[in-house]
């Protein structure tokens, strides 16, 4: 089954969804042929596009909805959710 799949996440990073988190997501999605969209209320970002993701301006605590569709959609969604859960594995960032 190729979806669509959906998960809710919350931004844990104190600095919000700055460029490193956005780049990590975009890089991950670009390795697949999946369609992945991230919603903040009525705003939507194509997860392949860093500029789109930055425009969500998601600060710490913001609730987001991730939807994925296409080949490997379930796996890519799980990987993105893990990035959020692991706080993007950012040790030192700015």
């Amino acid at each position: 089954m190729s979806g669509p799949y959906r998960q809710n996440v919350k931004v844990k990073n104190e600095q919000g969804m700055h460029m490193i988190p956005c780049s990590r997501i975009a890089q991950l999605v670009r390795e697949t042929s999946c369609q992945v969209q991230i919603f903040r209320d009525d705003q939507v970002a194509d997860a392949r596009n860093i500029l789109d993701l930055l425009m969500l301006k998601a600060e710490v605590g913001t609730s987001l909805v991730i939807e994925s569709e296409g080949e490997g959609a379930e796996s890519i969604l799980a990987q993105i959710v893990k990035l959020f859960d692991d706080d993007f594995e950012i040790l030192s960032e700015n």
Binding site: Q15, G16, L54
Partner: peptide, 10 residues
Amino acid sequence: RSGDHLRGLE
């Protein structure tokens, strides 16, 4: 000022 930083990037 991470909020300003995010707004600038946005």
